[in-house]
């Protein structure tokens, strides 16, 4: 058991434990904090597998941007454990059982998978030089399309989030209201 294996087990325990914390904690703010720790553990796995670019992007995009957005929305709505809606015990049990059954079914199917041993020596395929070359030659069209996707998502978020402006009541409305008074 070398240092790679020890780090793998530590990071895996951290990721799985904090993932359980996300779904079990009552307070949504605690859930967000647990999810951030899970993302950091997954970034640690990326570093372990020599995918440094993805590790940094994972921290910047997920822990830095997406989770801050979640935290912002939760604090905007002032959610806490007191107003947290809870499902009934039976529904929660049914959720755990169906998730566990999915786990068992996929486990039974990957049991027969061929075991591939990885070369733990460091490689440079995950470095930004190599990834940039592949991204801008082989995958240049998906890259451009994803920029269009981002633009449309941004416009969509602005359009959805915009407040419908409350128009002042017109003369006809006021006359109609006076009939009822």
């Amino acid at each position: 058991m070398d240092i790679y294996d020890i780090l793998f087990w530590i990071l895996s325990a951290l990721a799985v434990g904090c993932a359980l914390g996300v779904i079990l904690s009552r307070n949504p703010v605690n859930s967000v904090m647990f999810l951030i720790v899970t993302f950091f553990a997954i970034s640690g796995h990326y570093v372990l597998m020599n995918a440094q670019f993805l590790a940094i992007v994972n921290i910047i995009v997920y822990a830095g941007a997406i989770m801050v957005l979640f935290l912002f929305v939760i604090m905007l709505m002032n959610l806490n454990a007191d107003v947290e809606p809870q499902k009934g015990q039976m529904v929660q049990l049914a959720g755990v059982i169906s998730g566990g059954v999915l786990f068992l079914v996929i486990l039974a199917s990957i049991k027969t998978a061929k075991t591939e041993y990885m070369d733990k020596a460091s490689t440079d395929i995950g470095l930004i030089t190599n990834l940039g070359k592949v991204l801008f030659t082989k995958y240049v069209l998906p890259f451009e399309i994803s920029s269009v996707l981002f633009l449309s998502a941004m416009i969509g978020a602005v359009v959805i989030g915009k407040k419908e402006d409350a128009k002042p009541p017109s003369k006809a409305d006021e006359a109609e209201m006076k009939q009822f008074l």
């Binding site: 799985v16 359980l20 996300v22 779904i23 929660q92 049914a94 959720g95 169906s98 996929i106």
Partner: peptide, 11 residues
Amino acid sequence: SIGIMGALMRR
């Protein structure tokens, strides 16, 4: 699986 369980359990 933990993600699936959470999506089914929480409201």
